[in-house]
Design a binder for these strands. Structure first.
Lengths: 96, 96
DNA sequence: CTTGTATTTAGATATTTATCTAATTATCTT
DNA sequence: AAGATAATTAGATAAATATCTAAATACAAG
């Protein structure tokens, strides 16, 4: 689990808002785009970072590309933060 | 709770490593500095961002400034991620 | 097989960020 | 008060990042 990609991806408000939208269910890129004042090209850039962090998955459906949340990676992220909350024992080797 | 500052602060590997050091207990800036290959000035910059996010607190002790972890904010951060994992109901208004 | 729609990629630009060196501030010690 | 030590701030710079427009790719429908 590359913590660096993960936290970098979470650092941007637009990307966090994308994740928030996907909580309710999968959405095609175009539907996501309607919620933001930036271009689709810019959103594609954000999608790339989210995919790199494996926070989202994609599936092509016809001419649409449908994005969905990868909840397990979000759990991992929360877990990484919790690890910072005490027991050095529970340490996992990690280049972050 | 300004999510933006929080996630920005967590996005940098050096800062996460600082937090990891502080898990074991408070440390003066100088002791922290020994763990890193960068200048103390650069570390000061990281300290500023961590303080802005309220992830650390400081206390002057003589000529030393002692840093310690603010665990409750780390818990908040983990909580924000968990909120992304389902119930839109549990939503809290947040400009992030 | 051409036209239209959805999405991404390429390339450019302005802003932000991590880092450095040098200077400053704060405290301690003698 | 003067000098030494700890830490921060100021100012500069190189690298990373978010954004844009324009071009490219992928699929669907006539």
């Amino acid at each position: 689990m590359p913590a660096q990609h993960l936290f970098k991806a979470l650092a941007d408000p637009t990307r966090r808002e994308i994740l928030r939208l996907l909580r309710e269910g999968s959405l095609p890129a175009g539907d996501i785009a309607e919620h933001f004042p930036i271009t689709r090209a810019s959103l594609s850039h954000h999608f790339n970072l989210l995919k790199q962090a494996e926070l989202v998955r994609t599936e092509r459906r016809g001419q649409h590309i449908v994005y969905s949340l990868n909840t397990s990676v979000l759990e991992d992220a929360a877990g990484l933060l919790m690890e910072l909350l005490r027991p050095k024992s529970t340490e996992t080797t990690d280049e972050s």
